[in-house]
Every structure is written in structure tokens, then in C-alpha cells.
């Protein structure tokens, strides 16, 4: 009898928790990794890719892990699972992405952002999937804005000619022509993409055009539109067009993708591409912004 009563009470408590989660408006901060991955797929508490999980990085932060190895199209369901879990119904999300995570969120917003999504109760199972809350659907996800660290949605010249292992499916996606043809980067469905572009790159300066963070060049991390890359720099370089702050065209008149705004340009060449397991590189700038504004 006591066991039965205990079970009923536990069940009631769980039901109450689920009901509360389903009914209460909650904001979440979703972090989408780039190449190499590292976090356990479907485990939204595993921040292995980024750094210590105790670090402040936005309200109710979740790590949206994908393998960072296979094609974006193969892995994109993992991102949709997370968006369904945390960014539907009464719940809203702030998104932070790094490197190829930029390609991942842009791809999902353009191609799936207008699809009908079941509203979910944000209690994921081991695979990172959540159950439907009330059986109703909504169009797209509830996303306030997207912070992009070292965005690789415009591809990287390191994929163009073998600096990275070309047998990696993701590296094939990151070829500049392929990344830029993969989807319509202008279609963010009205959401702002705030771009953070690092410039502490030296190793591949002969291969990556303009300023780079050692993995991606400004044409990508700055969200410059076009079917191919280009050379963009800091204002101190007189022989190269500037990557401008904000949404306006670069020096030389090249448009950025719509709703892409450069909020950090690394004029002091201090930030590289890599998290170093401790929210490092240009990710540190995005982490600070998320802690500040994703609340």
C-alpha cells in the first residue's frame, strides 16, 4: 500500500512538473557546435565541445551536439530535435553557434523553418527527443536571435584544396562553393544573426583570403553574400576592402546576407577559431554576449 501510494505521489509530481514545463514560458540558450563535435549526441547537458558546463553562457543553456563530421544534411535532425524540444509552444530560444554550426542553423531555418512543428514538453529522452505537449503544431520555431562565432556558412578555403582531410563529409560541405549553394543564406526567417569574426590567423594566411581566424576568413565569419568567397580585412589594412560593422555592405560594395550584422570584428587580431575546451577564441566573445543578453 505504501509502495503504491509512493508511486502515485511520484507520478503526480512528475505529471505536475511536466504540466508546469508545458505551460510556463521559459527561455533557453541553445549552443550548436561546429566541426569535430565532442559532446554526446542528444545529451543537452554535455558541453564537452565548449568548455566547463558551469560557465555562464545564457539562460537555461543546452548543448545541441552533433558529430561535426558527417554532412550537415545527415546530422541536421539533431538540431531540429533540440529546436522542437525547447523552442516551441510557450518557450523561446536564443541560439549560439560556432563555425559549421552556422551552416547547421542556417540550413535548418531556410529549408525547415516554415514547416509545421509539434509543440513539445521540454523533457528530452536519451536520444534528445521530447514528447508532444498537446498534439498541436506551430509554424517554425520560436527563436529570438542567433549569435554566430567564427561562422563557416560561407565555407572555408581550407576545404577547397586539402588542408583538411577531404574524406570528411563535413569538409566537403564546407567547400566555399558548396556551402554557399547549399541553401538561401538570406532566409533567416526574420531572425538577426549577430556575427563575431576573429582575425588571429597566421598559419593559413596564404590560403585564407583577407583576415582569418585560422579556419575561416572574414567573407564567411562576416556573413558576406555571394556564390564564392572574397578578401576582407580590418580597417588598418589599406590594400584590402574592410569588413564593415553592422548590416551594411562591405567596403567595395559587397552585400552581407540579409539580417546578418557584424557586431565584433577583431581589429586587434586577438581571437582565433578554437574553443580550446574552455570557451576560448572568438567563442569567448559570443559566450559573454549570451551571458549578458540571452536571459
Amino acid at each position: 500500500m505504501r509502495r503504491w501510494t509512493g508511486s502515485v505521489l511520484k507520478g503526480a509530481a512528475a505529471l505536475a512538473a511536466l504540466t508546469a514545463l508545458g505551460a510556463t514560458a521559459t527561455n533557453y540558450s541553445l549552443w550548436i557546435n561546429g566541426r569535430t563535435g565532442g559532446g554526446q549526441l542528444g545529451n543537452y547537458a554535455d558541453f564537452a565541445y565548449w568548455g566547463p558546463s558551469s560557465t555562464a553562457a545564457g539562460v537555461n543553456k543546452k548543448s545541441v551536439n552533433w558529430d561535426g563530421y558527417n554532412h550537415v544534411s545527415d546530422q541536421s535532425y539533431l538540431v531540429r530535435n533540440a529546436l522542437d524540444c525547447y523552442c516551441t509552444g510557450a518557450n523561446w530560444c536564443y541560439i549560439a553557434v560556432h563555425s559549421a554550426g552556422n551552416l547547421m542553423i542556417g540550413y535548418n531555418l531556410d529549408l525547415y523553418g516554415g514547416s509545421a512543428r509539434y509543440k513539445k514538453t521540454p523533457v528530452p529522452n536519451a536520444a534528445g527527443e521530447c514528447t508532444n505537449s498537446d498534439g498541436s503544431t506551430q509554424t517554425g520555431w520560436n527563436i529570438k536571435w542567433v549569435d554566430v562565432a567564427a561562422g563557416a556558412a560561407g565555407g572555408s578555403e581550407l576545404s577547397d584544396a586539402g588542408s583538411w582531410t577531404t574524406s570528411e563529409p563535413l569538409v566537403q560541405d564546407l567547400k566555399t562553393t558548396t556551402a554557399r549553394a547549399m541553401y538561401n543564406h538570406n532566409n533567416t526567417r526574420g531572425k538577426m544573426f549577430y556575427m563575431y569574426a576573429g582575425a588571429k590567423g597566421t598559419l593559413y594566411s596564404g590560403i585564407l583570403p583577407g583576415q582569418d581566424d585560422e579556419a575561416v576568413a572574414y567573407h564567411s565569419s562576416g556573413g558576406v553574400a555571394g556564390s564564392s568567397g572574397g578578401s576582407y580585412c580590418n580597417p588598418s589594412d589599406w590594400f584590402c576592402n574592410d569588413l564593415t560593422l553592422g548590416t551594411g555592405a562591405t567596403e567595395g560594395g559587397h552585400a552581407k546576407w540579409t539580417n546578418h550584422s557584424v557586431v565584433f570584428r577583431d581589429d586587434s587580431e586577438s581571437y582565433n577559431h578554437y574553443t580550446n575546451g574552455n570557451w576560448g577564441g572568438v567563442v569567448s566573445k559570443v559566450r559573454a554576449d549570451m551571458a549578458l543578453n540571452a536571459q
Binding site: I207, P209, A225, A255
Partner: peptide, 20 residues
């Protein structure tokens, strides 16, 4: 004007690279 790189999908894609 909001989709400047989607307007001429059948034009060749020109690139300028370092000679690797």
C-alpha cells in the same frame, strides 16, 4: 534586394584562390 546572391543561379561561380 533582400536576396542579392539568389538572383542569377545559372551564372558560373567565379573564384579567386591562392595557387595551392
Amino acid at each position: 534586394s533582400a536576396h542579392p546572391d539568389q538572383l542569377y543561379p545559372n551564372r558560373p561561380i567565379d573564384e579567386d584562390h591562392a595557387l595551392r
